[in-house]
């Protein structure tokens, strides 16, 4: 346990779970009652099993999907990650047929660890509007003022 180990575990989550799609690693990193607080795209996910299903869904839609960690800031039981996600849309996603295009978005995610060194909570903030526009799920618009 400790700040450095927490940071390593967040790195493992992105490398092994998101990058390689190995959802079994989630059991090492997260407690089962893990809660995800998201935004408009995935507002709430309860439980690490639901996260496994979510990751599988995203990896089916974006088999090469992976995250680059741009920055990490950690203190106490919190690790904040600034990231860029990138993947090629080759499978159905949220009811939309594959476009074959590379989609990418930026995000800022905050992870909280429990006193056993496992991730118990996450606030995932992604700039989803460009992605939803790319999928044709919301109209093209000029983004600004926020």
């Amino acid at each position: 346990m400790g700040i450095e180990l927490n940071k390593q575990n967040v790195q493992r989550f992105y490398d092994e779970v998101i990058g390689m799609g190995d959802v079994s690693v989630i059991d090492d990193l997260m407690c089962s009652e893990f809660v995800h607080h998201g935004d408009a795209l995935f507002p709430y996910i309860g439980g690490s099993e639901a996260i496994k299903q979510g990751v599988k869904g995203v990896k089916t839609a974006y088999p090469d999907g992976h995250t680059v960690i741009e920055d990490m800031v950690a203190e106490g039981d919190i690790v904040v990650v600034r990231l860029t996600w990138r993947g090629t849309h080759l499978g159905p996603f949220m009811g939309k047929e594959p476009t074959g295009k590379v989609h990418k978005w930026a995000g800022l995610s905050t992870y909280r660890f429990n006193n056993e060194g496992k991730i118990i909570e996450r606030w995932a903030n992604q700039d989803v509007m460009p992605q939803l526009m790319a999928l044709g799920m919301i109209p093209e618009m000029k983004l600004g003022g926020g």
Binding site: V80, N125, D127, M129, G146
Partner: peptide, 22 residues
Amino acid sequence: IHIFRIVDGKITERWEWVDRMG
């Protein structure tokens, strides 16, 4: 959520995210 970088007692750099969609 905001990330600020601070140099010599001032915020010099900012990464900002607001749930505009929400």
